[in-house]
Computed example of a mutant assay.
Amino acid sequence: MNSKFEAKLANFRNALQRLKEAVDEFNQPGASEVIRDGVIQRFEFTYELAWKTTKVYLEDLGIVDINSPKAVIREAYAQRLLGDEKNWLLMLKDRNMTSDMYKEEMTEEVAERISTLYIQEFEFLLQKLQ
């Protein structure tokens, strides 16, 4: 693999580690809204790094002209890089919503999905890309 991929993979790995640290704090009793918001923000950049790293990986395999997150998700699933395509499409939907979240219950639901579902999906992808 090329150095561009290696750099993106290292950034994705680091972002995932930082997200996991925030989720650990979020899962503590009495975690504040600030911690929850930090989980969501770390999720946003981990998600961006995940799909962009996957795009470079697929390009290195000769799969080009996939430029949107949804197209990358579909191709990555076809290449068996993802565990559950439905979870990734839900993740995409949540990522698109995060910058416009004003309702407390939606924010809490997304943070819970990050904690219970998305971390595992990121870890599965990281394992496949390494």
Rank of each mutant, 00 (worst) to 15 (best):
K93P: 07
L9K: 10
D100W: 04
Y47F: 15
Q120R: 06
D24V: 08
K86R: 14
Q28F: 06
E123G: 00
F12T: 00
E48Q: 13
V72C: 07
E21H: 05
S115N: 09
E121Y: 03
V23Y: 03
L58A: 12
A22K: 00
A7G: 01
A71V: 10
Q28P: 00
S115C: 07
N14D: 10
A50F: 04
A76C: 11
E112Q: 09
Q17S: 09
D60T: 08
T53R: 02
N2Q: 06
Q79L: 11
F122Y: 05
E59R: 14
E121A: 04
E108T: 12
V110I: 14
R95I: 06
L125N: 01
D100H: 09
P29Y: 07
M101D: 11
G30Y: 05
Q127G: 02
S68C: 12
N96V: 06
Y57P: 00
F124L: 08
L19H: 08
D84G: 04
V39M: 06
I73N: 10
P69N: 06
S3G: 04
N67F: 08
L126W: 03
Q79E: 15
F5T: 02
L61E: 15
R113S: 08
E21R: 00
I114G: 07
F122Q: 02
F12M: 05
K4C: 00
L89Y: 05
E123P: 00
R18S: 10
F122N: 00
T98H: 04
K20V: 12
F45L: 12
A7E: 03
R74D: 15
L126A: 06
R42H: 13
Q127E: 11
N11F: 09
N2T: 11
L125E: 04
L9S: 01
Q79G: 08
M91L: 14
I63P: 10
E59T: 10
I35S: 01
M106D: 15
D37Q: 04
N67E: 15
I63F: 11
I73Q: 08
T54L: 02
D37N: 14
I66N: 11
I40Q: 05
T54F: 02
T53G: 03
A31S: 12
M101K: 01
A15L: 05
L16Y: 13
E21M: 02
E123V: 01
A22P: 02
L82R: 07
K103A: 07
K52S: 10
F43L: 09
